[in-house]
């Protein structure tokens, strides 16, 4: 009998799927075995990936076969890597701060710049332009729909922001409460937040349900095929 790769992979997939599903009855050794195997395989895979996908092509190869300029540019990250390795020694751990400072500074700059230019400013502009009829007409959207969508987006944004306004004043009876107008708007904001969270929950459920369907389908297909 010849075992094809599909059969082996199918058996392994069926086995580990059953082991993971055993978690339905609680934490058990079968589930732990599956988890430990996954962790071990993932670690080995990551080590190989780091060597073959990062160190060799991006560090060793330029240093060995690259031009002078490539070698010079590669020496900089190499120096940074050496400095970070100094963390092994408590006495020389301070040297790693140089590379870490570079990484943190560069990362913060990239993230902040990307967030500003890619998320904050465009999202603010999109909220403002929700009532842009010209844009809506360009997308073949009716005016009513544009107005309704724009009003809904604006209301949801405003009421949600009002909900997160926690400024309050002391009343005559000593209690601390927000203004009544803010309370009402915050209640509307809570509705929008609830809808958003419900949508996210539905998406999570749909994603998990799809994954479950795929696993059960694979089991059925494996059983049906063999």
């Amino acid at each position: 009998m010849v075992f094809s790769s599909d059969l082996v992979t199918g058996l392994l997939s069926f086995l580990f799927t059953i082991l993971i599903f055993s978690y339905l009855i609680g934490d058990n050794p079968l589930f732990r075995i599956a988890v430990y195997i996954f962790v071990g395989v993932s670690s080995g895979y990551l080590a190989a990936l780091a060597w073959w996908q990062v160190i060799v092509p991006r560090l060793i190869y330029p240093l060995v076969y690259g031009s002078v300029l490539e070698k010079a540019f590669t020496a900089i990250p190499l120096l940074g890597a050496v400095l970070i390795l100094m963390k092994i020694s408590p006495r020389l751990a301070g040297l790693a701060r140089i590379a870490m400072a570079f990484l943190v500074g560069a990362g913060a700059a990239v993230i902040i710049a990307g967030a500003l230019s890619g998320t904050l400013l465009p999202q603010i502009a999109a909220t403002i332009n929700a009532f842009d009829l010209s844009a809506a007409s360009a997308r073949n959207i009716s005016v009513v729909e544009v107005v309704f969508n724009g009003a809904f987006i604006l209301a949801g944004t405003v009421f949600t922001l009002i909900y997160f306004h926690f400024g309050a004043s002391t009343k005559a009876d000593g209690s601390i409460r927000r203004l009544k107008l803010i309370e009402i708007n915050a209640l509307v904001g809570r509705i929008f937040i609830g809808i958003t969270l419900g949508t996210i929950f539905a998406g999570v459920y749909a994603a998990a349900l799809t994954a479950l369907i795929e696993r059960i389908s694979s089991l059925i297909n494996f059983i049906g095929n063999y």
């Binding site: 465009p122 999109a126 996210i200």
Partner: peptide
Amino acid sequence: SSAQSAPMIQPYYESQQISGLVPGLY
């Protein structure tokens, strides 16, 4: 995207930063 991340990515489509969005199995 996955169905669970589609609501978070939807605003980028509304802001026309992306051209299209395919949310999960749907």
